[in-house]
Nucleic acid binder design. Structure first.
Length: 436
RNA sequence: GCCGGGGUAGCUCAGCAGGUAGAGCGCCCGGCUGUUAACCGGGCGGUCGAGGGUUCGAGUCCCUCCCCCGGCGCCA
């Protein structure tokens, strides 16, 4: 049995009805204006808004007093007749014949002009805004586009753990939890678990919350973020870059297909999104990047990290996402495979979003030799016994393979053109904020 | 962790040669009104982030602490 709508039409559907048709709508009061001859009540639902009007003349007194009593954000059910009127938003309105207040709202604290800080304190109410509603829909379409791509290419979705015993890299930025008097941590990455799974499923992916306790005060960091990770056997770095490009394009395409109205509500210029679908994402190696930066007069040399400012300069060369590849070994993690012809370079890649948004994906071919991996772990000062099961994978039928991590929230932030990552997710965990 | 900005009415902010605390929005009352974040008049509303110090007197000067915002580093 499907879901019943009990004779209701959504605000969007009402805009398609003909003059004179009778219908019912339910939602929340978005705006209200109590005038001499009419009471205007603009109703909001998940799809949009519709203006309803109660002409005071000839209306029963109890209906008028109910309309007068209703407040912004009260939930209501309204029955009425569709009228065409140019003065109404969308060109149609509903003439009220009956009104019930389901839940009367107290004075709603958001009136316009509030500070971000205050709005974050009442995020549970702020999420009703049309802008955040549209962003949540865009996020959904991003996820849908990603998922479709995996399905089309026969990847398997798996569910790795979030409570873990060891870090993928480093240890200073982990959230510690008490696991029956043993130290455990909230996962920073599912990469190692996914690497386990490729030995049976070959191509696997997962979306899991990842946690990083780094005190990052930037507009692109969350302490808790949605981490999409992929790992596949038999794939080299280039194969994986092609996959990532297809994956990102699938998400962009889905949003452009399904969410044009919402992109307009969040005022996203769609040109860059459309361009990104038309061309191949360019690749620039670390070596080339350093040259370009030097030519721009920036004081940087081979081996230096490419920071946010440098990244922004590189962004100016491209109007689509682009790959940055082949990094100096010492800048990257121990599990990245070393280039056969250059022992100081690893087969790593980042995908940078244009317009100054920066890194969205980080990936690499993984080191598949037991001896080399063991050596790298020791070199980095880690204890190989902490990585025993991970090292095991290289002892029982090791296979060339590659993988990556994608920041879902960062991708949404770029695609929706947001100025801060906090709005890409309903309840952002950033700075020291944990409420609501 | 570092650099910069800030905490004054429910909300957004002004006030600083130290001298009895202000505006706009919201709310309440009245007026006007097919309104689009409506408009006009009046009213209610403040331990000036916390603690300590200087002073006849501190929102304003000094010290300590807390919180928030923008950015860096780190990363996705």
């Amino acid at each position: 049995m499907g879901e019943q709508n009990e004779g209701f039409n959504s605000t969007k559907q009402i805009l398609k009805l003909n003059e004179g048709e009778k219908t019912k709508v339910r939602g929340w009061i978005y705006r209200k204006r109590d005038l001499a001859d009419n009471i205007f009540i603009v109703v909001r639902d998940s799809e949009g808004i519709i203006q309803t009007v109660l002409p005071r003349k000839n209306a029963p007194q109890d209906l008028v007093s109910l309309a007068e009593k209703s407040t912004i954000e009260s939930s209501v059910v309204i029955e009425g007749i569709v009228k065409n009127d140019e003065r109404a938003p969308g060109g149609k309105e509903l003439q009220i014949e009956n009104l019930s207040i389901i839940g009367l709202s107290d004075d709603f604290p958001i009136k316009g002009g509030e500070s971000i800080d205050y709005l974050l304190d009442i995020r549970h109410l702020w999420l009703r805004s049309r802008k955040l509603t549209s962003i949540m829909k865009i996020r959904q379409s991003v996820l849908e586009g990603l998922r479709e791509y995996f399905k089309k290419n026969n990847w398997w979705e798996v569910n790795p753990p979030i409570l873990t015993q060891s870090a993928v890299e480093g240890g200073a930025t982990l959230f510690e939890v008490n696991f029956f008097n043993k130290k455990a941590y909230l996962s920073q990455s599912a990469q190692f678990y996914l690497e386990v799974m490729i030995f049976s499923l070959e191509k696997v992916w997962a979306i899991t919350p990842s946690f990083r306790a780094e005190k990052s005060r930037t507009r692109r960091h969350l302490y808790e973020y949605y981490h999409l990770e992929g790992e596949a056997a038999w794939m080299g770095m280039k194969d994986m870059m092609n996959h990532v490009e297809g994956l990102i394009k699938s998400a962009i395409k889905k949003v452009l297909e399904d969410r044009l109205e919402d992109l307009e509500i969040v005022k996203r210029d769609t040109n860059i999104l459309e361009n990104s679908l038309k061309t191949n994402f360019p690749e620039i190696t670390y070596d080339e990047a350093i040259l370009k930066l030097k030519n721009k007069g920036i004081n940087i040399k081979w081996g230096d990290d490419i920071g946010a400012d440098e990244e922004k300069v590189l962004t100016e060369y491209f109007d689509t996402p682009f790959f940055l590849t082949m990094f100096p070994k010492h800048l990257k993690s121990f599990y990245m495979k070393i280039d056969d012809s250059r022992p100081d370079v690893v087969l790593g890649f980042d995908l940078e979003a244009p317009e100054g948004y920066g890194e969205v994906v980080g990936g690499s071919q993984r080191e598949d030799s037991y001896e080399k991996l063991y050596k790298r772990i020791v070199e980095e000062g880690y204890n190989p016994s902490d990585y025993q099961w991970y090292l095991d994978l290289r002892k029982y039928g090791t296979v060339p393979h590659s993988g990556y991590g994608l920041g879902v929230d960062r991708l949404v932030t770029w695609i929706a053109g947001l100025d801060h990552i906090r709005d890409s997710i309903p309840f952002p965990r950033f700075r020291e904020r944990i409420y609501p």
